[in-house]
Design a protein around this nucleic acid. Structure first.
Lengths: 205, 205
DNA sequence: CTCCGGATGTCACTTAGTGACAAGCCCGCC
DNA sequence: GGCGGGCTTGTCACTAAGTGACATCCGGAG
């Protein structure tokens, strides 16, 4: 259940504080010193962990996508995406830490339109997720990870997830709508189906 | 034939110098002062034009993608992408300014793996292109620009073009391969066909 | 010609980000 | 337990990115 190395965990912890501060005070009004103080480390260590201020949010943005990618790695060849996610999403999405990180991520996505720097962090996180998905998809269609069509499918599916994430985040935060977990799952499934450019969504021989 | 406003043109000009310097000396070794000196403007104006050093290359990266999107806007409903690009790409790709900007862009893409900051600029440029494509695709399938499937198709097609661009750039610069204009066009067409999640590639009723 | 608004330069300033070194800490080894 | 070596962190002085304030310049409308 534990995610990455010790260093990654430390980074993620700092990232959570940064995300909260960016949400509460705005990106420009938050300094490296503020992040360091909130995380209980020295400013120097903040800059050791992250190459720039916007990169401070990458781990929180990545982690949800990456955890989802990790879930997809468990997706059996013999099962369609619908049945797989229907049975595994509930347990997955009710993990406590997962929910807290998701909320943090959703809040960042909702202010993307005001903060171009955060958008570039978000796109970098999506790019990392895309790289992970390549492996999943390669396995599912029994092709090499270098295969262009495999990479294209990973990119399209990632783009689909990105759009759903942005849309739901903006709806929930900016428009005050409420989105149930089932609804969100359904939209993700539908988007993945629409975005997949290779036959990965149904059971594979 | 002229592209944007006076301000955008000025930005693009500075951006060309920045791209050249990043290529020649590397991103870290190039300062805002260097860019300003090369472009013949004050450093202050560099920071008025761009919100960060990496954003200095966005215009050169954007312009090729955006010009291609503009070309696609001329794509008649009654024509398939193959015949349209077959007849219009040659003239399009032989424009002198276009070639110079393309070379600059290709060089940036080829060093993406070493320079994470430039990757984020590239992803931002792709995002801008994606926004443009939404309109093109909406027109082609007679649907609203807000339609989720339209936006998804734009995202997938953009992702396809991004992958082709990165692949060709790396092949040409890092591996020293030579890619003919016809070959490049063929790969773009094939990628767009593979990436399109709506029926936009063939003649539309 | 003259007035006006917007774009640019100058310069002092703040904040992001790095280099160098010292101190702390974990961990295997004796 | 004590000892040594690598890896991580803090401190502090520094460089470079990026901003605010104001003077100036330039091009267009009257």
């Amino acid at each position: 259940m534990t995610d990455g190395s010790r260093l990654e965990d430390a980074r993620l912890d700092v990232s959570r504080h940064a995300a909260r501060l960016f949400w509460e005070k705005g990106f420009d009004a938050t300094g490296g010193d503020d992040i360091a103080a909130a995380a209980g480390i020295s400013t120097r260590t903040v800059w050791r962990y992250f190459r720039s201020k916007e990169a401070c949010v990458e781990p929180v943005l990545k982690v949800s996508e990456l955890r989802f990618a990790a879930l997809l790695k468990q997706w059996p060849m013999t099962e369609s995406i619908d049945t797989f996610l229907a049975r595994s999403m509930t347990a997955f999405a009710s993990d406590d830490g997962f929910i807290r990180d998701s909320i943090a991520a959703v809040r960042i996505l909702a202010i993307l339109h005001r903060e171009p720097a955060l958008r570039s962090a978000w796109l970098m996180a999506c790019h990392a997720a895309e790289m992970e998905l390549v492996g999943v998809i390669a396995g599912r269609v029994s092709r090499a990870s270098e295969d262009f069509d495999v990479r294209l499918c990973a990119a399209s599916v990632t783009a689909a997830m990105r759009l759903v994430d942005e849309e739901i985040s903006s709806a929930v935060i900016n428009d005050g709508l409420r989105v149930s977990s089932e609804d969100a799952t359904a939209r993700i499934i539908s988007a993945i189906r629409a975005g997949a450019t290779l036959p990965i969504c149904d059971a594979v021989a």
